[in-house]
Simulated assay, not measured.
Amino acid sequence: MFRVSNNLVGLLNLVTFLLSIPILVAGIWLSKQAGSECERWLERPVIVLGVFLMLVSLAGLIGACCKVSWLLWVYLLVMFLLILLLTVFTIFAFAVTNKGAGEVLSNRGYKEYKLGDYSHWLQDRVNNTKNWNKIKSCLKDSKVCSNFADKYVNDTVEQFYAENLSSLQSGCCKPPNDCNFTYVKPTEWNKAVGVAYADTDCNAWENDASVLCFNCESCKAGLLDNIKSNWKKVAIINVIFLVFLIVVYSAGCCAFRNNRKDNAYWSRY
């Protein structure tokens, strides 16, 4: 009688194999459609993930259902390394996102973001000129500030100050509140004539739509706040996924033991 653990491992890997097909197709489609560096960067991990899931699920499916012990052993090894990697990443994600939060301002619907409030590891990533140039390119390609300008174009200064802006909009698409620039439009602010600003972000601000505050520390901080929020969500999902992987790994170990018993039984006849 074929054992339950083998059936369970086979069924779960069949589902994983079927899921890997649209992931791989999406990655290939992205590679054909890529028109910017951001899109080209995105399609590579999608293709790698699709191929990885397909190969691993095939190994588990064939190993469990066809009783190929060596293939199931490879599958279990990969699963063990994946569990280890996810555990390390989850701990790391919680560690680097435990610092930093937006500063609440009086009479403002949005928050301000300071780069120094976030973990040193994250700061080092965005302070790297090569990294930040790529990130700026992605932010411009995503039209985060042009969409922001269109959405709030008819706001009076009082209405604009009451808006609940995202961390990227607050950090990259407008000057910091401490600069005390005169509001004209969401992405157009007049600097005071003859004033020397101590805050380097005030000097970095330009009304040019391709510049704005993309060179500001507040923009880097806004990005890090966005990353922090997303990484925490990913870390929580990883914990759930880890529990699932451990269950599958345990079933795989039982299936491997069953294969060895069956092979030993048939080798005697």
Rank of each mutant, 00 (worst) to 15 (best):
D141A: 14
D178K: 13
E163H: 03
T156A: 12
N154I: 08
V144R: 01
C202L: 07
D155V: 04
K143V: 03
Q159L: 11
S166N: 07
K143P: 00
N147M: 05
A198W: 10
P186R: 04
Y197Q: 04
P176G: 09
V193M: 11
S167C: 11
C173G: 07
F148M: 07
L168T: 14
K185A: 14
K191C: 08
V184R: 10
Q159M: 14
V184I: 12
D155K: 04
T182P: 01
S146N: 09
L165I: 08
C202M: 03
C179W: 01
T187A: 02
T182R: 07
V195M: 06
A192F: 08
D155L: 05
D141W: 09
D155Y: 07
V195E: 10
K143M: 11
K151D: 14
Q169K: 00
G171P: 07
C202V: 00
P175F: 01
K151N: 12
C173V: 06
F160L: 12
A196I: 10
T182S: 12
T187R: 06
T187Y: 02
S166C: 00
D201S: 11
D155C: 07
A196E: 15
N154T: 15
Y161F: 11
F148W: 06
D178E: 10
F181P: 02
S146Q: 13
L168H: 08
K151R: 12
D199C: 11
P175K: 00
D199W: 05
E158L: 14
A196L: 09
T200P: 12
D178L: 02
N180H: 10
C145V: 05
G171A: 10
S170C: 04
Q159H: 06
T200M: 01
P175H: 07
S142V: 03
E188I: 09
S142T: 08
C173Q: 02
G171I: 06
N180E: 15
Y197D: 03
A149F: 01
L165Q: 03
V153E: 15
P176C: 00
N190W: 10
F181E: 03
N177E: 12
K143C: 00
N177D: 11
N154R: 13
N177W: 05
A192I: 02
